[in-house]
């Protein structure tokens, strides 16, 4: 039982990171109908921003985190202007290729600066964690879980209870109609990119002390997050969260009880299962075709 709870805790922690990146996928997909293949690179950049600020510049965590997030917001805005906006009237494929290009560019730029050797980042707290009975709650995992809960709550409040949130939803549902009502569509999409980049960056910042910080971090996390959003039902916010958490738990249990080397394979086995049996995902397409 103790082992079960211990694994569940770890699985939820790592799953929360997948959820954050998956949320970024979903928000951009809903706003622009395009899959952003550079979403994982946002996580990688967030992690490297922490390396730069805390190790190269020697800033404390409490200062480095908000600065990193601000930098991520700026990167999201530039990404929108450079990668999406010029192609916004084109079809799906050119924009997707543009995001893949951006992903390659970002990865290789970091490679030039930091090389292929991974960096490692210290944990954010001095105290290692809390022991409850036989279960040990690692402080970094606890932080990840708490931050994810707060973010999900914030996001729910924002989209369901603020006018700006409603305008962003309207934009993602019908851009032409939104503009006819006077909703500044370009600005709504800009905000979506900024927020998604911050979400991705935050995932990278949170996970950096657990994983090694390397240029491969982006694709490593993004593949899982992408699988998570398909499992949850692509385009569904709740689905992204549930999908991310399930994936984290499944791969943790799979690694513990079945095989450690095949840890990464479990995520994709589950993904294949869904694609075969329920391709629309757990929460897929609740909105029926328009009357």
């Amino acid at each position: 039982m103790a082992i079960f709870l211990q694994l569940l805790f770890t699985g939820i922690g790592i799953g929360a990171v997948y959820s954050l990146v998956a949320l970024g996928f979903v928000l951009i997909y809903r706003a622009t109908n395009v899959v952003n293949f550079a979403q994982g690179e946002f996580a990688m950049l967030g992690a490297y921003a922490m390396v730069v600020l805390t190790q190269d510049l020697g800033l404390p965590y409490w200062a480095a985190i908000p600065i990193s997030l601000a930098v991520m917001g700026l990167i999201g805005a530039l990404f929108n202007l450079g990668v999406y906006y010029p192609l916004r009237h084109r079809s799906f494929l050119p924009v997707v290729i543009s995001t893949i290009g951006a992903s390659i560019l970002l990865t290789n730029s970091v490679l030039v600066g930091y090389g292929p050797a991974p960096e490692s980042l210290a944990g954010m707290f001095d105290f290692p964690g809390i022991q409850i009975g036989e279960v040990f709650l690692d402080s970094q995992y606890l932080l990840i879980i708490v931050v994810t809960i707060l973010l999900v709550a914030f996001q729910y409040f924002f989209f369901e209870h603020t006018l700006l949130g409603k305008k962003m939803q309207a934009t993602s549902q019908d851009k032409e109609m939104a503009s006819l009502l006077g909703i500044p569509v370009a600005r709504m999409i800009m905000l979506t990119f900024i927020y998604s980049a911050i979400l991705g960056g935050l995932a990278g910042i949170l996970v950096a002390p657990i994983l090694f910080v390397s240029v491969g971090l982006g694709s490593q996390v993004a593949l899982k997050a992408f699988a998570a959003s398909i499992i949850g039902g692509f385009g569904d916010v709740t689905g992204a969260i549930v999908g991310g958490l399930s994936l984290g738990v499944i791969e943790t249990f799979g690694a513990a009880y079945i095989s450690v080397p095949y840890k990464d394979a479990f995520a994709f086995l589950v993904l294949f299962g869904f694609l075969l049996i329920r391709p629309q995902g757990i929460f897929g397409e609740k909105v029926a075709q328009k009357a």
């Binding site: 006018l163 409603k166 305008k167 939803q169 309207a170 549902q173 019908d174 032409e176 109609m177 939104a178 006819l180 009502l181 006077g182 909703i183 909105v287 328009k290």
Partner: peptide, 21 residues
Amino acid sequence: PEGRRVFPGLTVKENIMLGAS
């Protein structure tokens, strides 16, 4: 516009409110 274009995932009240954007 033609086809009414009510936002499918927003409520009636929200749809109407957004008219004042």
